[in-house]
Simulated assay, not measured.
Amino acid sequence: MAGTKGQKKKKGILFIPGDSPVHSLDPRTKLLMLVVFSILSFLTTNPFVMCLILACVVALAYVSGLFEKWLYSLRLILPLILFVFVIDLFFSHQSAGAEFFSAQIGFIHAYATEGSLYFSISMVTRLLIIAGFSFLFIMTTQYSDFVKGLQGMKVPHIISFSLGYALSSTTTLSRDANNVIEAQKSRGLEFDQGSSITKIDKLLSLFIPMTVIMLNRSGQVSDAMQCRGYGTAQKPTIYQAPVIGADDGVAVIILVLFVILVILLTHFVFI
């Protein structure tokens, strides 16, 4: 069982079927939540408010029933998180508060203060908010439903199809990459051992197989689109168009109240 679970985790960010309240929401509602959370994360740099927004995203991940898998998926942005934290901590030039570290590296002056620490925490939290809900959106939304939702919003068909296919390709390419890695491991190539430089050299062995896979897949998709007469209909219809229900109305009301709370905290409490 443990080996099976490990294999499932290696598949990357995929849609996982479920009957949770988050799964049942209309794709347009979840897209609205993604936009709102992203905008709210840019309205403030206060760590408390940012953590409050992140807590809301974490709560949604817990309600979806995919908390452990969602948390595991965040490992993909761990290098970026560390990079953002270090850069903002030493090079954001936030001079407020006590100074923890100061050094002259050539012509670069790196220093860490209490203000830069708070700023770096805020930037990392912002990254977690945007990436976290984006991952949750992918894990709880079928790309076909996403396309139907965009078409229901009167988005041009070519745009909705492109965005939907990009969402689908994220999971497909992730699965292909893991298949190539497993195939290379079966040939004796170890990706989990050696230094960082050695690992980078080993990862280059994925470049040619993944390039061939993507070229073949693009040809297959092109042939499939032509066989189905893509682009011949001026006004394509939507089969089983998603319908906004009562759960979506409740979610939007809660979202509006949360936005008001964040604005009040940002402009009247933590000034």
Rank of each mutant, 00 (worst) to 15 (best):
K11E: 03
F15E: 00
F15P: 03
F15L: 01
G18R: 07
D19C: 14
S20Q: 02
P21K: 11
V22L: 05
V22P: 02
H23N: 07
S24F: 01
S24Y: 01
T29F: 10
L32E: 05
M33C: 02
M33V: 00
L34M: 15
F37V: 03
S38T: 14
L43K: 13
N46V: 08
V57L: 02
V57Y: 01
Y62A: 15
V63P: 06
L66S: 05
F67H: 04
K69E: 12
S73W: 00
L74I: 01
I77M: 13
P79D: 02
L80A: 11
I81L: 09
V86Q: 07
S92N: 09
Q94I: 00
Q94A: 07
G97F: 05
A98H: 07
F100R: 10
I108R: 05
T113D: 04
L127W: 02
L127I: 10
I129V: 06
I130N: 10
F135V: 01
F137C: 07
S144E: 09
D145R: 11
F146A: 06
V147H: 07
K148H: 00
F161W: 02
L163W: 07
Y165L: 13
A166Q: 13
L167T: 00
S168A: 13
S168N: 15
S169V: 10
T170S: 14
T171M: 15
D176R: 09
D176V: 13
A177L: 12
N178D: 14
A183N: 13
G188W: 08
L189Y: 08
E190C: 15
T198R: 15
K199I: 08
L203P: 11
L204A: 05
L206S: 05
M210S: 10
M210R: 14
V212N: 03
N216T: 11
Q220T: 01
V221F: 10
S222W: 08
D223N: 10
D223E: 12
A224N: 11
Q226Y: 02
R228D: 04
G229R: 15
T237G: 14
T237W: 03
I238Q: 11
Y239H: 14
V243W: 05
V243L: 05
V243I: 06
G245N: 04
A246D: 09
A246E: 09
V250D: 07
V252S: 10
I253Q: 07
V256N: 12
L257H: 09
L261C: 05
L261H: 01
I263A: 11
L265N: 06
F268P: 00
V269P: 09
